[in-house]
Design a protein around this nucleic acid. Structure first.
Lengths: 194, 194
DNA sequence: TTTTTTGTTGATTGACGAGTCAATAAACTT
DNA sequence: AAGTTTATTGACTCGTCAATCAACAAAAAA
């Protein structure tokens, strides 16, 4: 049975299963067996490919983060003007790929993981830094000295909307969620429109 | 040694210890022994007063929530006018009593708990509902039909700022945090000033 | 003063779960 | 063909921890 070249396939399956299970259970208290089972293999194999459960968590985080990054980059290439780019970044945060139950649940739990695991904290900081500089790049020409606080505020709204969504039930409404953040943006920009 | 009337004292000590330990460890993976030790008693006694660990968590949540509620109510009695009351509510969220490391850490983890434990979810919903109606009461006269979305947005900023604070290190700066939320409020209200 | 209630803990139980190991087998290398 | 690497798992170890129990002590009630 052993076909060679399984490693990337197994790893990808495990990463996906990790995210799904964390989202399903709603906490980091998922067993390696649960994850492995969902990924269609034994827990021993999971340990074989990832040294530890923590490694699995970190890989899952990196995966979500890189999907997120790709989505933002993609949105940016299609956007024009400072304001357009701002909107694009905000919208990307609530795109169909990112703003899903399981992913939202995973985010929340990664935040908790970052309290304990330095590596996880670092990853989250990288994400925050990127979001921040993306926003600042377009915000500075529009808001000058106040750009920093606006970026901070926008970031907080986005994270807050994610957090609150985790408490709701039913399918997330990305459009509505994005509306809350865009609303903030519009109102702030109005102060500089002329 | 057994002095009568220990129950409330022991329970209070446990609740306090629970919050501190969750904040310190940064997750819900605290053992009953850890909590009991910090509260100065055996784990058996902790189980004697609270039936289970989950009960302890819920009691800790209720405690934080009631402190929070008291703080908001207090701030409201001293505030004048719709705008004043709005600011008071926002500020209360970042008061010295609420916006502390351990409490912030506990909040984050209670949010996670709410994913799993229905009782915890209910408690969090009650808090959200109160915040919402407090904001709406003062927002409606100022923003009319848009009051709902503003309340939603303001709530998201507040939660977002809490969330982000959990990632930072060092003593939380309540003033700066409140500034982010107030900034949002001011900007939105400007749209209705005349 | 007996009895009951309240406070308290050390020791134990029972379950669960991360990580390891030994064994098996297919696929490549030489 | 012999040897090595890669894939795969069932069984096992070892630790941890929530929850319970048995036992002891002091206070309050009878």
């Amino acid at each position: 049975m052993p076909k060679v070249g399984m490693e990337p396939i197994r790893k990808a399956a495990l990463v996906k299963a990790t995210i799904v299970e964390i989202g399903r259970v709603g906490s980091l208290d998922v067993t390696v067996s649960q994850i492995a089972k969902r990924a269609g293999m034994s827990s021993a194999l999971a340990h074989h490919y990832f040294g530890s459960k923590e490694d699995m968590f970190l890989a899952a985080m990196r995966h979500i983060l890189s999907l997120y990054g790709a989505e933002v980059r993609g949105a940016l290439t299609a956007a024009h003007g400072h304001e357009g780019r701002l909107r694009a970044v905000v919208l990307a945060n609530f795109s169909a790929g990112n703003f899903r139950r399981e992913v939202i649940g995973a985010w929340l739990n990664f935040w908790v993981l970052a309290q304990t695991v330095p590596q996880a904290r670092r990853l989250l900081r990288v994400y925050q830094g990127r979001l921040r500089s993306n926003l600042l790049a377009s915000l500075r020409p529009l808001a000058g000295a106040r750009a920093t606080e606006l970026a901070e505020g926008l970031g907080a709204v986005i994270d807050g909307v994610y957090l609150r969504e985790a408490l709701k039930s039913g399918a997330p409404d990305g459009r509505a969620a994005a509306g809350v953040a865009l609303n903030y943006l519009n109102s702030q920009l109005k102060d500089f429109s002329k």
